[in-house]
Simulated assay, not measured.
Amino acid sequence: MALIDASARIMEAPPTGDDMAFNHGILCQVGLPRSKVNGTSFLRRSGDAWVHVQAGLLDEGSGPVEQPVPYGAMPRLALAWLSTYAVRHKTPEIHIGESAAEFLRLMGKDAQGARYKTLRTQMHALAACRLQMGFKGRTYSAQPVSQFDAWINDQESDQRPLWPGTLCLSADFYNILMESPVPLDNRALDALSGSALALDIYCWLAHRLHRIEGRPVTLHWRSIREQFAQEYQGKDADKDFKKRFLPALHNVLMVYPDAKVKQVTGGLLLMPSPPPVPYKG
């Protein structure tokens, strides 16, 4: 129902004001892992672009604690929200509220117990991770967060968990972001927030389709799987991935109605399309 409502709103009017969101260009091509990583690092490639995420340490009040590699929908939504704030206000220092509940509200989410716990885990993982990106011979060391005060829960008192209030993006991540942020429709992100795969497809199409010039581009299932889900292996890897990908793509096209994408024998046909946020002027 939320997807249908969002689709109707998006078709009725272009995004304005708080509907406008932004994301990092390279992260629109190669995203974070969608499921829990066995180990301490993750590598994803897409054509000339790649991203490598390495788990890090975070001081949670009594010394360093190993964090997992960030994964799933929450760090994607958090990074998009942080990037949007940074682009709008032209600052790497971001106000994230006085509590986790307030941060969730700022992100447009309610503070359910499970979501609250996921936010804590994934924000700590995101703040601690080391991130490298590469594109056409150039490598960027772009750890997203340069300073973060851990979310500490004082078990010996009735005080609410300590929350940092502000977060600072690293200079490298911020500078690359500001060079060419990718405009997105926040209504679409919200409607797709339950699926990391759908969020990745939406960001990818938003970044890719309006850049196609001339003839449409055909992508085969193997190359699409290598970009989105190297974890699918074995004899029927492409078939298994296709079963997951197509329903997610269907949902994405509901909230990106101008996207011209067609399923063809062996893959997808991408045609030149307007971006989800119209060009200025």
Rank of each mutant, 00 (worst) to 15 (best):
G108T: 10
K243D: 06
D149I: 11
E93P: 00
H89T: 11
N175H: 11
Q112L: 11
L249N: 07
E98G: 13
A142Q: 00
H124K: 06
R187G: 06
P164C: 08
Q132D: 10
R222M: 08
M107Y: 10
E12V: 06
P15R: 01
A171H: 13
A73P: 07
T121F: 05
G113I: 09
Y116A: 06
K90Q: 14
F103E: 09
F103N: 05
A100R: 13
V145H: 03
R187C: 08
Q112C: 04
D190T: 15
F241S: 08
R34T: 01
P14D: 10
L177E: 00
P33K: 03
F173I: 09
M20R: 13
P257V: 09
A49H: 03
P144A: 04
G266P: 02
L199S: 01
L209T: 06
A128H: 09
P164W: 14
Y85R: 15
K260C: 03
A128T: 13
I201Y: 10
L246G: 02
V30W: 00
V51A: 06
P15E: 02
V264R: 14
S83G: 13
L79Q: 11
M254H: 14
H24Y: 12
Q122Y: 04
L268M: 08
Y174L: 04
D48M: 07
A111Y: 09
G17V: 01
V264F: 12
Y71D: 04
A128R: 12
A196I: 10
A248H: 10
D19W: 05
G108W: 07
L268F: 09
G266M: 11
R88Q: 12
C168W: 09
D190F: 15
G61M: 12
A237T: 07
D48G: 03
R225A: 06
A229I: 07
D172R: 02
G234C: 12
P33S: 02
R138K: 13
E179W: 03
Q67G: 04
P14L: 04
A73W: 04
L104W: 07
L253W: 07
G17W: 05
L82T: 09
I176M: 00
L268N: 01
S46Q: 10
H207S: 12
S193A: 15
I212N: 02
G113M: 11
D190P: 00
A191N: 08
Q233T: 14
A100G: 15
P14Q: 11
L79C: 09
F148A: 05
A21M: 10
